[in-house]
Design a binder for these strands. Structure first.
Lengths: 355, 355
DNA sequence: AGATCAACTGGAAACGTTTCCAGTTTCCGA
DNA sequence: TCGGAAACTGGAAACGTTTCCAGTTGATCT
């Protein structure tokens, strides 16, 4: 750690010119080339680098954007974070990672804390939403973009996907490959994704296409492998009158892996006896054995879109609340199809289905 | 977005007291209770919340710490990030995520950028290190903690682990279960971890314990599943004179998963025909089938330790460079032992061996 | 009663930067 | 040669906060 940094004032003194000119010279705005030369030299000699705080105070810009989620460790959020960082960094914006906590109240606290002005914008993906939160977001002193539910009509910029339809795609695929007795392992219903996915499953299994077939739901305590394992044990041991389940739709990839493990415990082979689908299309699902058929909700794309949106807003782009929808699409892999050539399903091959 | 935020000056006016008293009242330092009451009320009426930038400028503290790695998506770094955030947030510190890029030069740029003073400290885990970087870190205007190599002797605070010894533990375990022809799938040798792990494998396989047995290395282009798959294909098809490999040590969990997939392609069963060990003890390895025996390098602990260290330093704790070492330990799971009760190996059961 | 002290308050400076404004020079065309 | 515009420069204010310093009050002790 060297002693202390040089300030613009010192550069000005060294160059023997005014503070104003020094600032201008370093920004290349309206300064003679002689001046620029002189100031540059002085700055270089002193190893000057501008102070972000002083600059922020004056410009009323922090060049920081916050990204807040309940659980930074979740692979989906990691993907978003990566995408957000990739979009923002080239524009000189830093990314601050924050936690929403698991309750609506703590998320509201977070949004209110934006009042202290440490970021120019916020990208948040709340697990749960209510009116208070919506109101807090609308009152926030900086632009906020929500990833998750569509909140366009509440006047909030949002990036959403249609996980309801996504579950529909998974069910349709299972029906297509001849499965007729489908179980659903969902996470908590009081979360935004949990509720949406339940609607998707209920809708898909009450559609004409599915008529005469059998469907049941089991709920996991959580969106984790362990919870999925527990729930799947309960589900698969139910053994309904219609006959054993020949497919299970899981509400995300981690739950799906729990399901596959439970199937293994019961001596069931995946996909022969039970086909399994996940959701989110995560790395972990792609490399799993069997590799996981999964509904991609475009986490990276959603992250990118949200970052772009917040970038527009902090760049003073005004206008009505935007709503960007990323369509879900199914990536079919081993867990619903007989294994042919495992190597083809690896991430390196970057399979992408059409959106 | 509401109009514009209230400032301390406005609170002071509203309360009809001086700016100084207002500040003191809100901080509870040396103000009469009447004063506190009055100012609190005014602040509440105006919905005042203190401006982080103004405060930073004056206090010369940003209450931010940066965490920089090459690849934010890597599970190991995600674990560290989570741990760092958990330690720092309760102390009122925010975490800024940054990318070191993949070269030493870009990492040096990053460290130099600390000169603009947007954070109070940095935690960095560089893939590659050289003298220029060491020098840049030493000259940095804020405390820097390096996760990775031990740099105590260079006068740099660091949190390290002994992945060399860790690989030794893996080899010892394999020998113990009777494996004699051990392959090693390593990542690039010009990275800090790659080099250390190679040393570990070479040392372990030239130790007396290993005398008479067979060892060979294959190098992957990268620390990813795809690269591991490729490398393992090459390794396992070598078929040395000493007989086929009955164990493979992989330099991290992702490579290990590639190895298991390659073994599957060749009709080899894991762990019966080939035992496989990974390193880093990631979630993905824990839930994989077969669950992965892996050398834990305590990513969370390293993150926590680094965060604590940087917290001490920004809290003006002076003293000689610290070096905190986190010992590696082996978590034995299915990939090196016959499967008994898969459920026991899930993360929910939180198995932890002694350090 | 006078002096000493503690408790509290307000004025003002300081942190480092950008930018408005006014002033000076230079140059060009009439 | 002169007027005016253009190009450039410097002074000073402003962003919002904390804290030093000096001053005022009220109480306690001798």
């Amino acid at each position: 750690m060297s002693s202390s940094r040089a300030t613009l004032i010192q550069v000005a003194e060294r160059a023997g010119v005014s503070l104003a000119s020094t600032s201008r010279a370093l920004h290349g705005t309206g300064a003679s080339s002689a001046m620029v030369e002189r100031v540059r030299a002085a700055a270089a000699e002193l190893g000057y680098s501008p102070d972000a705080i002083g600059r922020s105070l004056r410009m009323k810009r922090t060049f920081q954007v916050a990204f807040a989620v309940a659980d930074i460790g979740n692979p989906v959020y990691v993907e978003m974070l990566t995408a957000i960082h990739e979009v923002l960094a080239p524009h000189g914006y830093r990314v601050v990672v924050m936690s929403t906590g698991h309750t609506v109240a703590s998320t509201v606290d977070l949004v209110r804390s934006l009042g202290s002005g440490f970021v120019d914008g916020l990208i948040v993906s709340p697990l749960r939403t209510d009116d208070v939160l919506v109101e807090a977001i609308k009152e926030a002193p900086v632009p906020v973009v929500v990833i998750g539910r569509s909140l366009e009509r509440q006047g909030i910029d949002s990036v959403s996907t249609d996980s309801t339809a996504g579950i529909g795609q998974a069910v349709a695929h299972l029906v297509e490959i001849g499965r007729r007795r489908i179980g659903f392992v969902n996470g908590p219903l009081d979360t935004t994704p949990g509720a949406a996915r339940q609607r998707g499953f209920d809708a898909a299994t009450s559609a004409p296409l599915f008529a005469g077939d059998h469907a049941e739901t089991e709920r996991a305590d959580d969106f984790t492998v362990a919870a999925g394992l527990d729930a799947a044990r309960r589900l698969l041991s139910r053994d309904p009158a219609a006959g054993p389940f020949d497919a299970v739709v899981a509400a995300n990839d981690l739950l799906a892996i729990g399901v596959i493990r439970a199937a293994g415990e019961l001596g069931l082979s995946v996909p022969r006896d039970v086909a399994v689908t996940g959701m989110d299309d995560t790395e972990i699902g792609r490399v799993f054995q069997p590799s996981l058929t999964s509904v991609s909700l475009g986490s990276s794309e959603r992250g990118r879109a949200a970052a772009q949106l917040v970038l527009d807003r902090v760049g003073d782009v005004v206008g009505p609340a935007q709503q960007i929808a990323i369509g879900p699409h199914l990536a079919v892999r081993e867990s619903t199809t007989p294994l042919v050539e495992p190597a083809e399903t690896l991430p390196a091959s970057k399979e992408k289905s059409a959106r």
